[in-house]
Design a protein around this nucleic acid. Structure first.
Length: 273
DNA sequence: ATGGTAGTCGCACTA
């Protein structure tokens, strides 16, 4: 069984619902995890996506900001989780029912963290660190219980590697690539032995980006990108990601320059279960 | 070193 999972920070799902529908028709992922939907649950455009076969839709919304939604063609049950200390709508956790190969899918929109990389003077940065700590606590419990089929996707708002940003040196003091948050994210990954699927088949010194600022004049000419969006799998699912081969991981870069694009490109990982 | 853009809902905030 093959499962294609896409994650995409859409920066307003209502504004871009037609773009999303076009993507779904073209790439037909089994699961789409959206972040920054920027609407309430009852404002979410369920119909266009249900019409395309995404019968299972779980939304966590709030007015104007943040918000996440997971759409699936496979049966999926909502899990009740809590990661955000401020109770923002920043995650949707579900259990995907894929026959004997059920797995948990966690769709995250980790706080960006404001401008100053110091939790003492910047509440938003502290919030980001607290959110990461809550993730760590959750997965500790899950693995203890033996629920070891875990997929984590979303906008983590952290580009961990030197080659996950256009200039390691120039971004060392820029929130998203500062040593403290990078270390905490790396600890979270290593502590649970999660696999960053981006680097399964790509060397660590290959530049990979999923986000480019709106403020650039010519996005790909300057190409000042960052890899803020991630798909991680637990060790139990590593063989499934490996079986998909190098083509199993794909950053859909061209969607960053479609008409009225999000500032993030969609990102896909295929699993062969 | 600075400011550049986008979205929601408004005249501010978040990214």
């Amino acid at each position: 069984m093959q499962i294609k999972i896409t994650t995409w920070n859409i920066n307003s799902v209502r504004l871009r619902q037609e773009t999303v529908a076009r993507f779904l028709k073209e790439h037909a992922p089994d699961i789409l995890a959206l972040q920054e939907i920027k609407c309430l649950e009852d404002q979410f455009p369920y119909k266009p996506f249900k019409d395309l076969g995404y019968d299972y839709i779980e939304v966590s919304g709030q007015k104007g900001y943040h918000g996440a939604a997971t759409l699936s063609r496979l049966p999926m049950e909502r899990l009740s989780t809590s990661f955000c200390p401020l109770d923002h709508a920043r995650h949707v956790s579900t259990k995907v029912l894929a026959g004997r190969e059920d797995f948990e899918l966690h769709n995250f929109y980790i706080p960006a963290g404001g401008d100053v990389a110091d939790p003492v003077v910047n509440d938003k940065f502290q919030h980001k660190l607290d959110f990461l700590a809550a993730m760590n606590g959750y997965f500790k419990e899950r693995f203890k219980k033996g629920d070891d089929q875990q997929v984590l996707v979303g906008d983590f708002n952290i580009a961990p590697g030197e080659h996950d940003v256009w200039s390691h040196k120039q971004l060392l003091k820029v929130v998203s690539h500062t040593p403290m948050e990078v270390e905490i994210l790396e600890n979270l990954r290593a502590c649970h032995d999660f696999v960053d699927t981006a680097r399964l088949f790509r060397p660590v010194d290959e530049k990979l980006y999923t986000w480019w600022s709106y403020r650039a004049k010519d996005v790909f000419k300057s190409n000042r990108g960052r890899r803020l969006d991630h798909i991680w799998v637990s060790q139990a699912l590593k063989p499934a990601a490996e079986k998909a081969g190098a083509q199993g991981y794909e950053i859909h870069t061209e969607w960053r320059i479609k008409e009225k694009p999000s500032d993030h490109a969609p990102l896909t990982q295929t699993l062969k279960l």
